[in-house]
Amino acid sequence: MIEYVDTLLPYITTILLISSIYAIFSLGLNLEWGFTGLINFGHVAFLAIGAYTTVMFNMSGFPLFLSVIAGIVLSGFFGLLLGIPTLRLREDYLAIVTIGFSEVLRFILLNEQWLTRGPFGIHGFERPLQDVIPYQHYNTFLLIVYLVILAIIYLSLERLVRSPWGRVLKSIREDEAVPSALGKNVFWYRLQSLMIGSAIAGLAGAMLAFYIMYIEPNTFKPIETFHAWIIIILGGTASNKGTIVGALVFYTFLSVTQFTNRFLPFTAHQMGAFRMIVIGLLLMLLMMYKPEGIFGKKEELALSD
């Protein structure tokens, strides 16, 4: 029994860690899509920018805390750069441009080896307080820190979306002609939403790097963006609480099903594909029977009118 607990606790810790990182990542996208209606299919780019910037700044001699700040700021800045030419486009074009951006960035990370070490990735970088916290307790320490960060991000976002600022974002999501006719600068609000969402993704990138201790370009494939979309839809679009629960459910599912191939006649590779089939099926059932997601409000369902 004791043995069981000894293996189970670290396992739960890893699930919670990865869920909290991707919950923060998805909260950024939820601000953009759930509250502002921006279809961003390249959200993972900002996870990559956050992770790489933090690690590279730190390795070139900046203190760790400042490096994380740099990662957040640079992600927000790239959000601004991407937003200026694209946020005047229609929503579906924005989707195309953003997914293109995230893939271009991944190929730059792969090919500019002098800067990023390309496909070899970067490892052996510093982690916060690694000399103070004993290695065997490090994940527990990280989890506590990450849960605090998650709580701060969650509460801040809740405050923002309930403010008049959030009200303008929601009105843009509904029908941008209305806020325009009432004197709101729709473009500027979209830009703010994209910048903040991207900066949050940048923070998640730094957190991811500290947890997995190794970053390489293929950690940031487009599928990560779509995982965030699944999480948001699962939890309930425009619900921050739902996004967090969605992340927990999704990564618990991904993680638990890693062991089910012991009971099923699949190879590990087939199991990976099978998991996605199950997720797809579950999403379809969700859309049919509870389209607003776990915590979404039916009246605020952003997928239909």
Partner: peptide
Amino acid sequence: FQIPRALTKMTVSENLML
């Protein structure tokens, strides 16, 4: 607008307070 553009997924009060 000729065809009223209510912000349908916001409350009446939110519509006005915007």
